[in-house]
Design a binder for these strands. Sequence first.
RNA 1: CGGGGCGUAGCGCAGUCCGGUUAGCGCGCCUGCUUUGGGAGCAGGAAGUCCAGAGUUCAAAUCUCUGCGCCCCGACCA
Length: 476
Amino acid sequence: MAKGITTRAEDYSRWYLDVIQAADLAEHSSVKGCMVIKPNGYALWENIQGQLDKMFKETGHVNAYFPMLIPESFLKKEAEHVEGFAPECAVVTQGGGKRLEEALVIRPTSETIIWSTYKKWIQSYRDLPILINQWANVVRWEMRTRLFLRTTEFLWQEGHTAHASNEEAQRETMQMIDVYRRFAEEYLAAPVYVGYKTEREKFAGAVRTYCIEAMMQDRKALQAGTSHHLGQNFAKAFDVTFQDENGKLDYVWATSWGVSTRLIGALIMVHSDDNGLVIPPRLAPIEVVVIPIWKNDAEIEGMRRRIAELTEAWKGRLRFKVDDRDQFRPGYKFNEWEKRGVPIRIEIGPRELENNQVVLVRRDTGEKMLLPQDGLLDKIKELLEQIQSDLFNKAKSFRDANTMPEDDYEQFKKKIEEPGGFFRVHWCGSAECENQFQETSKATIRLIPIDGEKEQGRCLVCGKPSEQRVLVAKSY
RNA sequence: CGGGGCGUAGCGCAGUCCGGUUAGCGCGCCUGCUUUGGGAGCAGGAAGUCCAGAGUUCAAAUCUCUGCGCCCCGACCA
């Protein structure tokens, strides 16, 4: 087993932290709950950003930037919003050595500062829609933090759109949750369930919150992205109105949607193993590492030359690295790149050089193969796609095998503890029964499926009629 | 906020109970030589306000008091 990594079976939570350390992704800073994202971790974020940003632009959005400091009074304008966020806000009360007239909140999310601005931008239906995204940091003073999953300060993107009609805002909300689903499945290789939150779990200030939920290897759920239909709540709070084609005045309709560096936590917990990180190829900063093996100085020169020839055609078509550091032996390098999750490793030694071959090793399965150097690039390309889909399918099989219907409350309470998983249960829709789930099992209703089949049943808790199953699980 | 743990070299720790030479070990780091197909070996070397403040004492990493910080487990949450 890998040195320094606790196994998943031994202690899942320590394993998670060990993987982050072994892959050199991040470390705690000197301020409680804050982290330094190191180059290896940040490279993952950059790839996540790059792809998402592309998808946002393809759906008509543009980027902008709003400030981090928000007048405290802004936050208080939307009743539900302030109730939800006030307890976890960091507040600046001094500046320039003087006490401020009005305290400034460090944004926990930007709805208020953005809608106070949109008020100035919107008069007519011709000013709509506004489709803006911003990449930013936010601060939420959480009681309990975990690297990537929940840090005091975190990086994210938040989309904030303004529309002339409820229907259009609804379409936008659905479009973006689908963008998140596609990103999670096609890039993160993490299958997700799509649905909407209960009243209790929804975003403070939203009419409805849609979400994607992924299953981690310990069978717990992780909310991986949310898209909120905000109705006219913020427009009313900030008095943002527009005139329609008929000259009639109405409040603007809004959405907001976001994903954060938490996605890196999801990537780790969905795919990695007891040897360290496993990165899905499409998000891998380095897709292929080439490790030359030599016995003496005479050999290394020929080796370098041959590798340069071989990789010449890879430039611009493959993210690769040649690790010809002399201070480490091959075994050390194999291990290091495994811990760091690089999808494919290629070894070239005197034997391969002579036979015009390479040894190729898959990170996800450990499978070793001897391949001809001719046509290697195409073979690598093909394998990367194979690994990408294998990772997805593996995660999906695991999730599906651990998602089950349950109609017996006593059984449910047992199973949620051991072995755990996602449970599809009937629920009457009452807050009382929802609270019961949490109090007796520490599980929550993760989502109400969007396309859930209608099915007559009885609420798991109270036995009243229910028309649809909801997804219940313990979560991060 | 409750429970647990910790603060000594870059990292991980021992030493603290029972005060006493120059504060030690492993990893890492630097130099040299030998090595290089799954975490190399030998030799030499550099590196410390022992979390902070106050107190007790001839003498404090060690005892007393006060403070600060971090991590892990729960309640709040992306």
